[in-house]
């Protein structure tokens, strides 16, 4: 057994242990913290699966932004929970039954997964064959923005719908207001310093990620998530604040990604072989063009989702 294998097994054990913690921890807040750690460990697993793009996404969105969202929520809920509630666990026999069911599901799944052919059927050769047409080096970016760009565009629409859904939970009187704390409400020295130093660096990294994403691991999701994180940091430090949900600019940025995507896709009917096809030779620049807007949209959408529905009328 090589060292790498031992490390793998150790990592697996750790991931499962932390996952179990998030399920069994008494306190919801502790469970959420565990979940963030779990996400980071999981990205290591992804690295071991040679899926660096996924690892970056998992770290940035699966663990990072989701973590901020959950920790924020758990914190607020902890404040409210003092007033009591009926949070008792279901009865022991039911839990036992559920446990047996879940173990059985696990075993069935594991059995099936192990029975999958290895090497398995793959689209890698297909993807490689068409890679030249796209002019990209990173096959995952090619899948996301060319072969299966339809999925990606729709997934951007999912984000837009999530924003609409979250906003719809505002109280009526705050419609048109903004989420989060007003600027300068919580002056905090260290945070402010961090918020001044990090963002320029982060923005650079984010943009770089999108740019290299064409050929190397990275891309709009990961880059967008980093940009989003930077914005969130400056907001937490009170340096910037959430714009009003009625801000035309905010909305423009929110829909820019999917809108440009759709526009370029539909233009394919006139300028290429069909919808969501790129004209020969123009694939890469067009993809980068779309990615730029997508990054922008993601960078704004994620913080908007984390911030939640508007809770105050913004001072003009």
């Amino acid at each position: 057994m090589s060292i790498l294998q031992i490390l793998d097994i150790g990592l697996a054990g750790l991931v499962l242990a932390v996952a179990a913690w998030t399920v069994f921890a008494r306190d919801a807040f502790a469970a959420v913290v565990g979940f963030v750690a779990y996400g980071l460990l999981l990205s290591l697993v992804w690295v071991r699966l040679f899926a660096v793009d996924v690892a970056l996404t998992e770290a940035a969105i699966g663990s990072g932004v989701t973590g901020v969202l959950l920790i924020g929520a758990a914190g607020r809920l902890r404040k409210l929970e003092a007033s009591g509630g009926d949070d008792e666990l279901p009865g022991a026999s039911l839990r036992l039954f559920a446990a047996a069911l879940c173990i059985f599901v696990t075993l069935v799944l594991a059995g099936v997964v192990l029975s999958l052919p290895d090497p398995g059927p793959t689209l890698a050769p297909e993807a490689a064959r068409h890679l030249a047409e796209t002019g990209l080096g990173n096959p995952i970016t090619a899948v996301l923005l060319s072969y299966r760009s339809f999925d990606t565009m729709l997934e951007k629409v999912v984000l837009v719908l999530a924003v609409v859904g979250v906003w719809s939970l505002a109280a009526d009187q705050y419609w048109g207001g903004a989420a989060g704390n007003p600027r300068g409400a919580e002056p905090d020295g260290t945070r402010a310093l961090l918020a001044q130093v990090l963002p320029p660096l982060g923005i650079l990294i984010g943009i770089h990620m999108v740019w290299v994403g064409a050929d190397e691991p990275g891309g709009a999701f990961q880059g967008g998530a980093i940009l989003a994180a930077m914005w969130m940091i400056t907001m937490m430090a009170g340096l910037t604040e959430m714009p009003s949900i009625r801000s035309r600019l905010l909305r423009l940025v929110l829909v820019a990604g999917p809108a440009v995507f759709v526009a370029v896709g539909v233009a394919g009917v006139a300028f290429a072989s069909g919808v969501f096809a790129y004209p020969t030779g123009f694939a890469k620049p067009l993809i980068l063009f779309i990615e730029a807007f997508m990054t922008l949209s993601i960078a704004v959408t994620l913080p908007v989702l984390v911030a939640g529905p508007p809770k105050r009328l913004r001072q003009q």
Binding site: V157, R246, L252, P258, G274, V275
Partner: peptide
């Protein structure tokens, strides 16, 4: 392979998608 009238299929999906984006934007 795409058949005659196939373009209507994506149109049926994209049209309301455009509607969603335009509606959010113009409010």
């Amino acid at each position: 392979a795409s058949t005659a009238g196939g373009s209507l299929l994506w149109l049926a999906i994209i049209l309301p998608v455009v509607g969603i984006l335009a509606s959010l934007l113009s409010g």
